[in-house]
């Protein structure tokens, strides 16, 4: 008797889970379709295309950013492809110069629409770097090579 109870309970739970799953699958396209009606308007940004496919970025930008954030923060990896700074450079609005100053700006357009709070901008600048004189880069490059040579020699000495 008890076994039967358990089995039927289990069965009903499974059915419930399946129902939820089916609902999720069915809802996904319909949600997208609905979204088509009043999709958030956002400025696309500069350049030909994003660093990844648009569809991929829509779903995965947060994972890319989080991965990159940890790599940069803890290991000093400074590639630009998936850096937040890179996003801001391209996607800052022409009107406000920012990705999050108004509800129409690139990040806020979708995040307001989906009502997903984001706290990146508590700390990070929403505007691209102000243009600096180009000398810093040149200086860095000039410094690099002789030092490389230097240390190669130096390394051999005790």
């Amino acid at each position: 008797m008890a076994r039967l109870d358990l089995a039927s309970k289990l069965g009903s739970w499974l059915r419930f889970a399946a129902l939820i799953g089916a609902a999720a699958v069915l809802a996904a396209p319909s949600f997208q379709a609905a979204a088509g009606v009043d999709k958030p308007k956002l400025e696309r940004g500069k350049g030909e295309r994003c660093v990844e496919d648009t569809d991929f970025m829509r779903r995965n930008h947060m994972q890319l950013l989080k991965h990159h954030r940890d790599e940069t923060m803890h290991r000093g990896i400074r590639t630009t492809k998936h850096s937040l700074k890179g996003c801001v450079e391209c996607h800052a609005s022409e009107k406000t110069g920012s990705v999050a100053a108004t509800k129409e700006d690139f990040c806020m357009a979708c995040h307001t629409y989906a009502s997903v709070k984001l706290d990146c901008w508590d700390c990070h600048a929403t505007k691209p770097m102000a243009k600096k004189p180009a000398k810093t880069e040149a200086a860095a490059e000039a410094k690099t090579s002789p030092l490389m040579a230097n240390t190669q020699n130096g390394g051999a000495k005790p």
Binding site: R75, G76, I77, A140, M148, T151, Q152, G154, G155, A156
Partner: peptide, 28 residues
Amino acid sequence: GAAVAGTAIAPGVLLYGMAQAKPADQPV
């Protein structure tokens, strides 16, 4: 370490050198 680095690790790239101008995709 310098001797080991010179032979065992990629030839021509010393670890000290890395420090001075680390490629962006390399960890510190």
